[in-house]
Design a binder for these strands. Structure first.
Lengths: 221, 221
DNA sequence: TAGATTGTTAATCGATTAACAATC
DNA sequence: TAGATTGTTAATCGATTAACAATC
């Protein structure tokens, strides 16, 4: 049998639905680890999360892990496999633009580091905010974003500015060498195809909620 | 030709991807309205948002609107159609559980009312927070949530508590007659099938971002 | 009228789910 | 060994995209 070299690291594109489920598995595995559980099968995971066992198996396989027939996976090994696949085992520096409500919420969310993200600087355009503290950082002028991001080789930008400023600040980030934008504005950003954009669109989420609720009401009446 | 009675209101289930795109159309239409534009075609919308024209047409049709061949849609009519379909034209009261970083961000986000949501009360378990102001509201004890929600016939609950408390507070909401939960925790809630749950999972979003960035880096090197 | 655009049916694509051989 | 579980290939399902007749 020829030796197969596994691609364990995060070098393979996985479908977005799979990627979005991985943190849920990770959370379950952590709870199991605390319970002292050593191994786990896809069937058990699927039952706990109300998912299809085959889907779980394919999701886990995407991280590069190989299971043992009749046994399943070792909980600790699987946990590490997910963490390494998602890059949660090493800190990625990020800059935050927009220190409003959402920006401050992200700055105060210490657990972000558990997910591999470390906000190293925060910027805002409002003179009233510049210079004031936010979390452990001092808010800097948005004019200094490019300089800082470039100098520190930051590759991730968090966009939490008002919608009207979203595209302008995104352009700024791209110019500064940012490679990925975590976009908390509802604006569809127009950036080069090489830039990764992940949208956290509350209006989109709310649209789904509203429609589903209206439907449930209609079905009940 | 038989008369067809349109189902304009939000009584029909639409696919989630369609629902998630509707706010983007709405935003574009608002900008067009400000520019004084009267009509618009799917082709124009599709080009502006880098989408497929047929997809736009189907999305818009889901809201119940009927267009005119050669003309397209009237911008104001289309705007109203989306708003009515998403329920953005009438205020839905909601209660917020958890007045931490994320909870406070939502409380301070006045524009939520533009999307039909109105937070009428905020609750927390931390005695240090109870009684203090948050936005225009005073934070109440989580023990009073069920009472308030039930008395005011609130149907939407916003869950922004720590992960450890998520399931407990969700149970509380269900007992109080809440029909839909906007879940900002990464916890997969176990609730009756009749309850609508919409997850805003930052860890899921971050997982996609991390993987896509790692891939882009691998492709570039 | 001519032709742009809608509404709808058919084809494609990708993700989920089912089936099953390999394995410990 | 017997049987639970993995890994993988095939079938299904739903959303996207293409094709095209109807219409103003």
């Amino acid at each position: 049998m020829p030796i197969k070299y596994g691609t364990n690291s995060s070098t393979k594109a996985a479908p977005a639905p799979t990627l979005r489920r991985l943190p849920t598995y990770h959370r379950l595995l952590q709870a199991m680890m605390e319970d002292g559980r050593l191994t786990v099968s896809c069937t058990v995971i699927a039952q706990a999360l109300v998912l299809d066992a085959t889907q779980v198996r394919k999701d886990l396989a995407a991280t590069g892990i190989v299971g043992k027939p009749k046994v399943g996976y070792f909980v600790d090994e699987l946990t590490r496999s997910i963490e390494s696949f998602l890059g949660w085992d090493k800190l990625t520096p990020a800059v935050l633009a927009g220190a409003g409500n959402m920006g401050k919420a992200l700055l105060g969310y210490d657990r972000l580091a558990e997910y591999g993200l470390h906000i190293v600087a925060a910027f805002d355009a409002d003179p009233a905010r510049i210079g004031s503290p936010a979390g452990k950082l001092e808010i800097l002028s948005i004019d200094d974003l490019a300089d800082h991001a470039e100098r520190l080789h930051v590759q991730v930008g968090i966009l939490a500015v008002p919608p009207g400023a979203a595209q302008t600040v995104a352009n700024l980030m791209v110019l500064a060498g940012i490679r990925a934008i975590w976009n908390f504005t509802p604006v569809r950003l127009d950036v080069p195809a090489t830039i990764v954009v992940e949208n956290v669109d509350l209006t989109a989420s709310l649209a789904v909620l509203s429609n589903r609720l209206a439907n449930a009401r209609a079905a009940a009446s």
